[in-house]
Computed example of a mutant assay.
Amino acid sequence: MNAFRRSALIGAGLAAALTAGVFVVGCGSDGATDTKASELSISGSYIPLPATPGGMGAGYLTVTNNGGGDDQLVKVSSPAAKSVTMHRSTGSTMEQADSLPVPAHGALKLERGGNHLMIMGWSKDPAVGDRLELDLTFAKGATITVQVPVQPLTYRPGS
């Protein structure tokens, strides 16, 4: 396949992914023949509207890895917030995490009561319907940018 055709196919696939809100990125040393590569996609992202203007917000999403290699979410940032940190919740405690695992043929779920993102220092107060750009960086080198919708505070996916 020539380079122009490959670029056109990649561009068409990217346009479809942006429209669908699902992003897939393969990471590894040798693409098709590397059984240890990660193949990441992001789905189900949302941010409940913070309870107070300018307050901290939480972010939730699922990172699915259909590849044969483990990966790790190592950094999250946003051009519209001063700080986005990863947190781990267990029982009655919450602690900041330096990284979160994304297992091969598995998923990392960021959800209420579990692993999640904390968003602080918004550049402007969010409103329901806004979208916040998040840049998710993984240990194997991929950075995936997602536009995460702000939902009502009481929003629960699937309900």
Rank of each mutant, 00 (worst) to 15 (best):
M1A: 15
N2G: 09
N2M: 00
R5Y: 10
R5W: 02
R6W: 01
A8N: 04
A8R: 12
I10R: 07
G13H: 05
A17T: 01
L18M: 08
L18I: 06
T19I: 08
A20F: 08
A20W: 05
V22Q: 13
V25M: 10
C27V: 06
C27H: 01
C27Q: 12
G28I: 02
G28S: 05
S29K: 14
D30C: 04
D30V: 03
G31K: 05
G31A: 03
G31C: 04
A32L: 11
A32S: 05
T33P: 00
T35S: 07
T35A: 12
K36H: 06
A37L: 09
S38H: 01
L40F: 02
I42S: 01
S43M: 03
G44H: 03
S45C: 07
S45T: 08
Y46A: 13
Y46V: 04
I47W: 01
I47Y: 01
I47V: 15
P48R: 07
L49A: 05
P50T: 13
A51Q: 13
P53M: 10
P53K: 13
P53R: 09
G54T: 10
M56H: 09
G57W: 03
G59H: 06
G59W: 09
G59T: 09
Y60P: 00
T62N: 04
V63I: 14
V63Y: 00
N65Q: 04
G68L: 09
G68C: 08
G69W: 02
G69I: 03
D70P: 00
D71M: 08
D71W: 04
Q72A: 05
V74S: 05
A81Q: 07
S83R: 10
T85M: 13
T85Y: 05
S89W: 09
G91I: 14
T93F: 13
E95F: 04
E95V: 15
Q96E: 14
D98V: 12
S99E: 11
S99P: 02
L100E: 12
P101K: 11
P101I: 15
P101R: 12
P103F: 11
P103G: 11
A107S: 14
A107H: 09
K109A: 08
L110K: 06
R112D: 14
N115E: 13
N115G: 15
L117T: 09
I119Y: 03
G121F: 09
S123H: 14
S123W: 00
D125K: 05
V128Q: 04
D130N: 11
D130T: 14
L132Y: 01
L132P: 00
L132M: 03
E133Q: 13
L136F: 10
F138R: 04
F138I: 07
A139F: 02
A139T: 03
K140L: 05
I144P: 02
I144D: 12
T145D: 02
T145C: 10
T145R: 15
V148P: 00
P149W: 06
V150W: 00
V150L: 13
V150Q: 05
Q151A: 14
L153M: 10
L153C: 05
Y155D: 10
R156A: 12
P157N: 11
G158I: 12
G158R: 15
